[in-house]
Design a protein around this nucleic acid. Structure first.
Length: 423
RNA sequence: CGGGAAGUAGCGCAGCCUGGUAGCGCAUCUGCUUUGGGAGCAGAGGGUCGGAGGUUCGAAUCCUCUCUUCCCGACCA
């Protein structure tokens, strides 16, 4: 993509009342544009990143047997009354009237849709297990949207739902999903101890659920790190003595009274949450299957959520530096940000065009800053946008066919002739 | 939803206290000079001062109401 024709405007200054780093950087760099509190447009650069995050999530869900579907965002009232959540989730439901004065809402989550959907396909133990997922915009009427992409009213979410004949089968799939989630964070640059598997309250059917918490001072959650540095405990269950003994014992081998008070408290962003739902929803909808023994039973379910838009904000928050964004290769909008330094220098332009063509021919995604702009402006913008590699064609090396390369994350550079790449 | 702060050009701000026809920087457009880390000079365009009501001869400025945004808290199956 040539920068000169791109739908993009970067700015030197962030909007005054954007305090959170992800909102400032993503806004300044032209990845997103705010429409109202907690609601954003994704511009070309931002959409590329969002799509790549979703691709990573999709690949990892497919790899464990998840099957992609797409459910409606628009829901009738009755399914929500069936589960009792029309009133219970009052705070977050956007409610309004449709044609014929019918009560409607926008989906903040999809158990109410997926459970009857599962029932339409599953009638026998032979139909189990099944796992379906979707990636979609979700709507929650948060009392206070805040922190840029971290807490919106409209946001992207991958939600997977699994159906099982037995608790053991659910447990096994749940563990598999947990591992898949960790692979997602690794690929997004949030692995290697940056993201903890955290024990949180489990709800009605299990002792715990698991949250995935990325460590950063800008996070709004507080978690306590267990000794292994890979697991944590959510603040909300810290006062549960039984849970403490169980969890700490599980990771340390033993538990002594008061051990939880020695844990280090850190701030983190919740970047995923997985739950065992048991038969709460299958019972609500009267969804049964016939088991081997001919007995009708309720399938047990699990649900697994991860928010691509929040992940995008988290990456911006955690991996950026003072000059701008720093994208991991798997999700960068482009692999290379190529730039010419002099639009009036024929050798520069010619070599820039050649490098651009060669990169594209090699299948490399490249953003080519071909504008008639000053060098400093191009350098600053490239750092702000944060593609993994910068390729500079300037008057110094152009005549000799030399391209200067710089790694955005490490700052390391090298000079290579046309046709050679630094990776 | 409670508390706090702020709304003036696309963005960042001054002006408000002490009422008298709205200004600066960035961005945009034109010209010239520049050209390796967000250039300089000269000129140009762009604003119902968030909205409504009120006080006044006269309101960006004073008063009332309202909307919005951001921050803290509460909330976050």
């Amino acid at each position: 993509m040539r920068r000169s024709v791109m739908f993009l405007k970067t700015t030197r200054e962030a909007s005054a009342d954007e305090v959170s780093k992800n909102a400032q950087l993503l806004g300044r760099a032209g990845f997103v544009n705010q429409l109202m509190a907690g609601v954003y447009s994704y511009l070309p650069l931002g959409l590329r990143v969002l799509n790549k995050i979703e691709r990573v999530v999709r690949e990892e869900m497919d790899a464990i047997g998840g099957q992609e579907i797409l459910m409606p965002a628009l829901h009738p009232k009755d399914i929500w009354e069936t589960t009792g959540r029309w009133d219970k989730m009052e705070d977050v439901l956007f409610k309004f009237k449709g044609a014929g004065d019918r009560d409607l809402t926008l989906g903040p989550t999809h158990e109410e849709v997926v459970t009857p959907l599962g029932a339409s396909v599953i009638a026998s133990y032979r139909d189990l297990p099944k796992a379906v997922y979707q990636i979609q915009s979700k709507f929650r009427n948060e009392a206070r949207a805040k922190s840029g992409l971290l807490r919106g009213r409209e946001f992207r979410m991958k939600d997977m739902y699994s159906f099982h004949a037995t608790q053991e089968d659910l447990d096994a799939f749940y563990d598999k999903t947990l591992d898949a989630y960790m692979r997602v964070y690794d690929r997004l640059g949030l692995g290697g101890g940056r993201t903890l598997v955290t024990y949180a309250s489990g709800g009605a059917f299990t002792k715990y659920s698991h949250e995935f918490q990325t460590l950063t001072d800008s996070g709004e959650d507080r978690v306590y790190v267990l000794g292994d540095g890979r697991h944590g405990i959510n603040e909300e269950i810290l006062d549960d003595g039984g849970a403490m003994a169980d969890i700490i014992g599980r990771h340390k081998g033993s538990y002594a009274d008061g051990d939880e008070k020695k844990l280090e408290q850190v701030k983190a962003i919740e970047v995923g949450n997985i739950f065992k739902l048991g038969s709460r929803f299958s019972e609500a909808f009267g969804f049964k299957f016939l088991d081997k023994d001919g007995v009708a039973k309720y399938p047990v379910m699990g649900c697994y959520g991860i928010g691509p838009s929040r992940l995008m904000g988290t990456i911006a928050e955690v991996l950026s530096d003072e000059n701008g964004l720093v994208w991991p290769e798997d999700v960068a909008p482009y692999k290379v940000n190529l730039m010419t330094l002099r639009a009036d220098d024929a050798a520069c332009v010619a070599l820039g065009d050649k490098v651009y063509d060669a990169l594209q021919a090699a299948g490399v995604e490249v953003l080519y800053d071909d504008r008639d702009a000053r060098a400093g402006e191009k350098f600053a913008e490239a750092d702000l946008i944060g593609c993994p590699w910068q390729a500079v064609v300037g008057p110094k090396g152009a005549a000799a066919g030399i391209v200067e390369w710089k790694n955005r994350a490490t700052g390391e550079g090298c000079e290579l002739p046309l046709g050679s790449w630094p990776w």
